[in-house]
Design a binder for these strands. Structure first.
Length: 233
DNA sequence: GCGACAG
DNA sequence: ATCTTGTCGC
């Protein structure tokens, strides 16, 4: 099993990482609607950690956006490339996630990330970062509101309310994917509109709160991590 | 200065 | 994220 190395020139500290985010932020494209919901491919991405052994396993699972059938799955294992710092999550996951994406043989279509895109202290979260690096459309679907505020959306599936930064700027939406269940937090990553990002999320979360893409990727990266642990040391 | 803080 | 059994429910 190959273990992905941390790239040369990778940010050595928090200041360098923040500077890189501000630089890459300039390449973010926010004026495209993105792929039509329900068509083409959608790819779920997620990672699992073993801080003890300094390992991170990433999974990419491509689904048919219309049927939600699995089209292809890949994994990659790497060294943990950054400590967890709120606002710098991307630096912890990106090298290994990119390796998993690189080994796909089909078009990933829309990237669905476990975390945020525009809803970020510098408006450049994981989903935006991955979008810019790959050039692909991307969205972020997070399970927690991070530092943002929102009013409770209506009780029905599809109801939503704005996710606000500084109490005023809409950086995403609290979207109810299942009636009577806590909402998820959707934000635009790269080359997708917020309306489409929410439409994609609803199509991917017809049965559970979390999108099928993320659910598949979550279980796969956990299995990949266990496999790496069992067959490595 | 202190607390909060995606995964 | 991760540590973790049984349990309630479809």
């Amino acid at each position: 099993m190959t273990i992905i190395d941390i790239p040369a020139g990778w940010p050595a500290d928090e200041a360098a990482a923040r500077a890189l985010q501000r630089e890459l932020r300039g390449r973010l494209v926010l004026d495209e609607p993105g792929p039509e919901p329900g068509t083409g491919h959608v790819t779920g991405l997620d990672v699992a950690y073993d801080d003890e052994r300094d390992l991170v396993a990433a999974a990419a699972v491509v689904l048919d956006a219309r049927t939600l059938d699995v089209v292809e799955e890949t994994t990659a294992v790497g060294r943990v490339s950054f400590p967890y710092v709120p606002g710098l999550l991307a630096f912890r996951e990106i090298p290994t996630v990119l390796a998993a994406l690189d080994s796909l043989t089909v078009d990933p279509g829309l990237l669905v990330c476990d975390g945020y895109g525009l809803a970020h202290p510098r408006r450049f979260g994981l989903a935006s970062h991955l979008g810019v690096l790959t050039g692909l459309s991307s969205i972020g679907v997070a399970k927690n509101p991070f530092t943002f505020t929102y009013d409770q959306p209506g009780p029905d599936r599809g109801d939503f309310s704005p996710l606000l930064a500084d109490g005023a700027e809409e950086v995403g939406r609290a979207l109810r994917t299942q009636s009577g269940v806590k909402p998820v937090f959707v934000s635009v990553g790269h080359r997708v509109s917020l309306a489409h990002a929410c439409a994609h999320t609803l199509l991917l979360a017809q049965r559970y709160r979390i999108p099928e893409t993320t659910r598949h990727a979550d279980s796969l990266c956990r299995r990949a991590l266990k496999a790496a642990l069992g067959g490595g040391p």
